[in-house]
Computed example of a mutant assay.
Amino acid sequence: MTTTNSEDRLALRELVENWALWRDAGDWDRFASVWDPAEGWMTATWFQGPAAEFIAVSREGFDSGVSILHFLGGHTSDIIDDRAIAQTKMTINQRASIDGVEVDVVCTGRFYDFCRRNDGEWKVVRRQPIYEKDRLDAVDPTVRLHLDRGLLERFPTGYRHLAYVQTKAGFTVKTGLPGLTGETVRCLYDEGAKWLAGSDTAGDPH
């Protein structure tokens, strides 16, 4: 049976909120504490790898002025014993420059987190965002922005503009990440069900 312990649900919600607050504030020591120390894995448009490496490159970007912020919405979690799948509505906000034009890109989706309780504390084993839709606006609405349609259409609709901005900024952006519908997100849900059922690994993040 799925656990309905309200304390666990509150702890998982706090875990996700701490991730966003500490990462965006550059509080790197506390940010490291939200991850499973042995298996923590982060997948993003611009990064896929161990949590320790994600923390390092996030810190480098933060120190060099990269502006990526996260805002959270509704949250739910499925819990069985010491494992959980937490889903949290979120937006990713990035400010950058495209061909000399300052822009804001906003991507809406969900954080899909494979979590495990170790020594009484919940930790993130794997984070896989789900990218549902995005948009791009010039900060100055009087400025006309011209986009490369070929580059824009290389990426899925759920994070097309975010990927465009990040590619222009020099990042290598992964294609084929899960969106609102489709085979990729269905595979992710299947991995989540297997995790709750006791799978040895939190899916295949690679």
Rank of each mutant, 00 (worst) to 15 (best):
T2Y: 12
T3V: 04
T4V: 11
E7M: 14
L12D: 04
L12V: 02
L15A: 05
L15T: 01
E17P: 00
E17C: 01
N18F: 00
A20N: 01
A20P: 00
L21F: 10
R23K: 13
D24G: 05
A25G: 12
D27Q: 11
D27K: 10
W28G: 08
W28D: 10
D29T: 13
D29Y: 03
F31I: 07
F31D: 12
F31S: 06
F31Y: 14
S33D: 15
P37G: 06
E39A: 10
A44T: 09
T45W: 00
P50W: 04
A52P: 02
I55Q: 11
V57G: 02
V57M: 11
D63G: 03
S64Y: 01
G65L: 08
V66C: 00
L69A: 11
H70L: 00
F71T: 14
T76Y: 09
S77C: 06
S77E: 05
S77N: 03
S77P: 01
R83C: 02
I85L: 06
Q87Y: 03
Q87W: 05
M90F: 03
T91G: 08
T91E: 12
R95Q: 13
A96Y: 02
A96L: 07
A96D: 15
A96E: 09
S97D: 11
I98D: 11
I98F: 10
G100F: 10
E102D: 15
E102K: 15
V103F: 07
V106F: 10
C107M: 15
T108Y: 11
T108L: 07
D113G: 01
R117T: 02
R117G: 04
K123C: 07
K123E: 05
R126C: 01
R126S: 04
R127Q: 14
R127G: 08
R127I: 09
P129V: 03
I130D: 03
I130G: 02
Y131S: 03
Y131W: 12
L136F: 07
D137A: 14
A138M: 06
V139E: 12
R144N: 14
R144E: 15
R144G: 13
L145D: 11
H146P: 00
H146C: 09
D148M: 11
G150Q: 13
G150S: 14
E153R: 13
E153T: 12
E153P: 01
T157P: 04
G158W: 07
Y159D: 08
Q166N: 13
T167N: 08
A169S: 15
G170N: 08
G170Y: 08
G170T: 09
F171R: 12
F171C: 10
T172S: 14
V173T: 10
V173E: 05
K174F: 07
P178M: 02
P178N: 05
T181P: 03
G182Y: 09
T184D: 12
L188Y: 09
Y189I: 10
E191Q: 13
E191N: 05
G192I: 06
W195T: 03
L196T: 04
A197M: 00
G198K: 05
D200K: 04
T201D: 09
P205D: 06
